[in-house]
Design a protein around this nucleic acid. Sequence first.
RNA 1: GUGGGUGUAGCUCAGUAGGCAGAGCACCGGGUUGUGGCCCCGGCGGUCGAGGGUUCAAAUCCCUUCACUCACCCCA
Length: 424
Amino acid sequence: MIKLVRGFKDILPADTALWQHVEALARELLEDFGFYELRIPLLEQTELFSRSIGAGTDIVEKEMYTFTDRGGASLTLRPEATASVVRAYVQHRLYAKDPVWKLYTIGPMFRRERPQKGRYRQFYQINAEVFGVDDPRTDAELILLLMRFMGRLELPDITLQINSLGCPECRPRFKNALESFLTSHSGQLCSDCLRRQDQNPLRLFDCKVPSCKETMQDAPSVLDHLCETCRAHFGSVKESLEGFQVPYQINHGLVRGLDYYTRTTFEVLAESLGAQDAVAGGGRYDGLVKALGGPEQPGVGFAIGLDRLIELLAGRAQVFEKRPHVFIAAIGKRAQSVGFQWLQDLRLQRVRAEIDFENRSLKSQMRRADKLEASYVLIVGDRELDDGIAVLRNMTTKEQEKVPLENIISFVVNRIDTTAVGSR
RNA sequence: GUGGGUGUAGCUCAGUAGGCAGAGCACCGGGUUGUGGCCCCGGCGGUCGAGGGUUCAAAUCCCUUCACUCACCCCA
């Protein structure tokens, strides 16, 4: 048997209804907030990611699916969406028509990590990006949108954490302070942290080793090193969130894994997910558009991890499954051919109808109707055909009524509430 | 990349002093002539993850390998 590739997965019919529901809700909300959908390719030039995400990051260094295509170009399956969205914004000069764009995209990303709970090599994200506005209310609005989405899904036990990483003005000052702190405390750090110290010193803030945690409590905070404008910006984000009663925690150790982030960063965490507890994350990236060859335009965005979100919603999938409205139980050859005609006619009227082609006993056909959770069963055999009727049984009330064969389709259509999702 | 746990029927799992591969659920049929769920009876279904070794005999012991899973790491 040929099996699927490690770290990849099939999303089976038992779950697709839930995925569709979540995606539809996201589209609805995003479009209410003025976002337009952008569809971008799965494959990009490798350089796009090494330049945006950062050549030294783990993603670029050891997690990308990169290959040389037959023409000799180095291509990469996208490990995230923002780089592609920025590329499209720049390449098509969207900024020339209007510098302000609110774009979203939904689709799979690829990272070759070791699979575990909530971490797959192909995983799905909903991405939203806003270009051309550096007003802190945009940051807040984006977070509000995100939290409304979570609220609409009725997710339990989620927390929002926010932080500011500063800008090219103030970040170097903080980095210096942090570096000298780390150098003087290197004796108390674990081997992982000593390795991270040069590559990505901010990461030390979320090390899980107790001694590191303790040491880092005395480490300098980014928030104490923000310049005047960054401080004001962050203050305004917080103020807006409070104005909309969005509860948040400040986590000065909150870091993004990608180099391009500036100022506001945020993450939505769900404890019940286990080690991979970030359901959504994002932040501002004011230098990225320019770094990718575009004009000096600010940007801010987020990504929602769909796989993890669905995980949180596990068990609710059944609610969104669509059961048949009518099951046609046809006994005998003559009835079978009449029933097959009705089946197609009902579907023309957007009634979900099913039939069994095996010409089995009425008992088996009833059993099948029950298994499919059909709302009604339309019973027809030689007896009914001779009398010019069929029997319509309501499976919940067990009431049966005789239906004349002429106009039978419209009769059934009227009995059924085609707007109802399930049948019970 | 590093560690731990687990691989037996479609699913959830039993099965060790090595001795005929099991249960529940699911699926199919039946419980008198044309009516579902509950109950009863019967049936279908397995290269015991794969390869090798020890043995008269291996799901069980040994070696190798693969997969899944959780955690580290990393991140949505």
